[in-house]
Structures are given as structure tokens and as C-alpha cells.
Amino acid sequence: LHGLSPENYVSQWGVSDFALTYSIHEREDLISSEMVSEIGQLDGIENLRLTYAPYPQVAADVVYDDAVFHEFLASLDGVNGIDFSDPAKLENYQQNFFSGVFGIDSAYLEEINKTLNLPIDTSAFEQGKVVLLSKTVEGLIQPGQEITIQTQNGQHSFIVANGYLNEGFRAGGGNERGTAPDLYISQTALKELFPQYRVFRVAFDTDGQHDESILQELKQITASQANIDIISRYERREEMQEYLITAKVLGTGLSVILLLVGVMNFVNTMVVNVNTRRYELAVLESIGMTKRQIKRMLFMEGFYYWGVSLSLAVTIGTAIFILLYMIFSKVAYYAVFSYPFIPLVLVSGLVLLICLIVPIWVYKTDVNLPVVERLRLTE
């Protein structure tokens, strides 16, 4: 469960510590300039970024080009009830091709450029010549291809950039999609193409010291607009923390039970092993082997058993552990591989003590009788 720490979870979610957004179907301008101003004055916030969308309609018609969107449509076939086996349905989908158009802060582009060998042309982006897409369509729509949208002023074409926005960029209520991929252009380009626009998303990071108070103040600021979603890594972290506490209690309890069962079984095996060798040990002692030498022999045997057990745990056990992680990570994508070194060391130490102490303890309880008596009892 260490790989499911709250930090691992929230680091995979979204691109900002806090975000406010709403459904693309909302006709009202929910996030007002006064609201943005109040948010900007909160203590502890950093990197405040606005995302704009056309008003009152967020979406814009996209000219369908099979050379550009063929792979994208193929990826949708059979998903969420979409069926393109009927040519009429496919044609209807292509004719009703639209997407959300959003004007994003140039800071997002700067962050993407840091990860690219060939940075995106910032000037071309600001001039409305380049469009960013989400990572969800990476590999489906190729960089350099042209996407054309229909606006009130006619058609406008963009070149697809060679970088992509994080998949969680539009987490929350504003995450609904059009039939075409979302288009992210510069704020300058959006304002030129769409005379009417509105703030669709407010996102910012924090210093990590005021998250709880910021969340409460955001709820007060947006109290008059119930349809605004507040998404925060702070809340996600708290939710995951509560889940992990429950999971760790159950997991630890189950682990302790399994450990006790294993230890009891191991102790029983060691006891039976020594008891079945009573005659052998008595014979060795009768021909001159000292009790100290017998104890040393049992000690070395216990150490040998421990070495074999540890080797199996490190090899076969690790292989099983990695296999389980690979299966689990497909369900919990935010899981991070973390080898349990400390539990392994603690359990290994416990098993070592058992292997060294139990055989000698059983032997000591048996040597209270004379050698002759022990030989007679085991005949």
C-alpha cells in the first residue's frame, strides 16, 4: 500500500492544485471577473491561470477531414455505445463534428516546451496558427496536420502542435467532450475568432500551507453559483488518506494473521524435526559428541533453513510481487512500485530468531533425561 500514498495519487491528477470550472453546456457566464479578482487575492496561491471559451456556445463546428480524423474515429468505435458499423451513422457523426475551443494561458505552452526536443513556436501559437490537443489523442492525430473550424467570420485553420496537454487538464464538470477532440488555442486567437467569450476555468497552485483555508474561501466565493465545480488536490489527498487508513488497518490485520499462521507452522515444523531426531541426537551424544557441539549443529541447521527461506522469498517472492504489481497498476494507474525492504528485513529477522532458537530450545527440554533413558524411549 506504500505505492498508493496520497502524494502518488494527486501527482497523477490534473495539472494544478486547485481549479474551478463548469459544464460546457452552461449558457451563463458563471465565473465573473469579480470572482476571479477575489480568488487572486487569496493568501498562498501561485501561478493563477485563466482559460477562456466562446460565449454563449463553448463548442465550434469542425470540418471533418478523414486524413486527419480517421484514426480518432476508429478509436471511438464500440466505446460508450458508439457504433460505426452502419455507414449512415458514421456519416451522421462526421457531419455533426464539433469540439470545445479553449483559449489557454501561454504558461501551459511554456511548460510543454520544457519537455520537447523541438519546442512549439510560441509566436505562431499566439497568432492562432497552432493548436494544442490533449494527450488522449496522441498517436491518433499527428503533429503537423491541419484542423479547420467554422466560426461566424468563416473558416480558420490550425496546425497541430508536436506537444500535448496533460490528460487531466479539464478534470471536473467541464470535462464533457464534443464529437471532435478539444482544441486549445491562445487567448489572443480565441478573442479574435470569437468576439464573445467568457472565463471557463480558473486554475492555480498553492504554497501548500493554506490549502484548507483556500478551499473554504473558494466555497464561499462560489456559493452563489452552485454549478461551479471546485477541484482540488487537497480534497483528493484527504480522500485517499482516509481510504488508505482503512485499507492499511485491514491489510495489516490480515498480514499479521497470515504471519502468525506462518510462524506457528514454521515453529511446529522445527519442533517435529528435532523430536523425530531424538534417537539420532542421543546416539551422537553417546559416542562422544558434546551437548555444545550438538547445539552448534542445530544452530547451523537453523541458519541453513533461514537462508533457504530468505532466498526463496527474495527470488520467487519478488517475482510474484512484481507480477501482482503489474496487474494492480492496470487498475490503479497512479500506483508506484515500492519494494517492501523494511517489512522483509523485519520478517527475515523474526524467522532467523525462530530458526536459531526453536531447535535448541526443543533440544534443551529433551536433554533433561539421561542419554540411556533417551535411547530407550526412542527404540
Score class of each variant (00 low, 15 high):
54 P>D: 01
54 P>I: 00
56 P>Q: 09
57 Q>M: 11
58 V>H: 13
58 V>N: 07
59 A>W: 04
60 A>R: 05
61 D>K: 10
62 V>R: 02
62 V>H: 02
62 V>T: 08
62 V>W: 06
62 V>S: 08
63 V>G: 00
64 Y>M: 11
65 D>F: 05
65 D>T: 08
65 D>H: 06
67 A>E: 10
68 V>N: 08
68 V>A: 07
68 V>L: 09
74 A>F: 11
76 L>Y: 01
78 G>F: 15
79 V>H: 14
81 G>N: 15
81 G>H: 11
82 I>T: 06
83 D>Q: 03
86 D>Y: 08
86 D>K: 13
87 P>L: 04
87 P>D: 03
87 P>S: 01
88 A>G: 03
89 K>M: 07
91 E>A: 14
91 E>C: 04
94 Q>C: 03
95 Q>Y: 08
95 Q>T: 06
97 F>H: 03
97 F>S: 07
98 F>H: 12
99 S>T: 11
100 G>W: 02
101 V>S: 04
108 Y>H: 14
113 N>L: 02
113 N>I: 00
113 N>V: 01
114 K>P: 08
117 N>T: 13
118 L>R: 12
120 I>C: 07
122 T>F: 06
124 A>F: 04
124 A>R: 15
126 E>N: 08
126 E>P: 02
127 Q>A: 12
128 G>K: 00
130 V>Y: 06
133 L>G: 06
136 T>S: 15
137 V>N: 14
139 G>M: 13
140 L>M: 14
140 L>I: 01
140 L>E: 13
140 L>Y: 05
141 I>N: 07
141 I>Y: 12
142 Q>P: 11
146 E>G: 03
148 T>R: 00
148 T>Q: 01
148 T>C: 07
149 I>Q: 05
150 Q>D: 10
154 G>S: 09
155 Q>K: 01
157 S>V: 00
157 S>T: 03
159 I>Q: 14
159 I>A: 14
160 V>E: 06
161 A>D: 03
163 G>C: 09
164 Y>F: 15
164 Y>N: 09
168 G>R: 12
169 F>Q: 15
169 F>I: 09
170 R>F: 02
170 R>D: 13
171 A>I: 15
171 A>H: 10
175 N>M: 10
175 N>G: 13
176 E>L: 06
177 R>A: 15
178 G>M: 03
178 G>C: 10
178 G>I: 07
178 G>Q: 04
178 G>Y: 08
178 G>S: 10
180 A>Y: 03
181 P>K: 06
181 P>Q: 04
182 D>W: 07
182 D>T: 04
183 L>G: 01
184 Y>R: 11
186 S>T: 02
187 Q>N: 02
187 Q>K: 02
188 T>S: 14
190 L>S: 02
190 L>A: 04
191 K>C: 05
192 E>C: 07
194 F>H: 02
195 P>H: 13
195 P>Q: 14
197 Y>D: 03
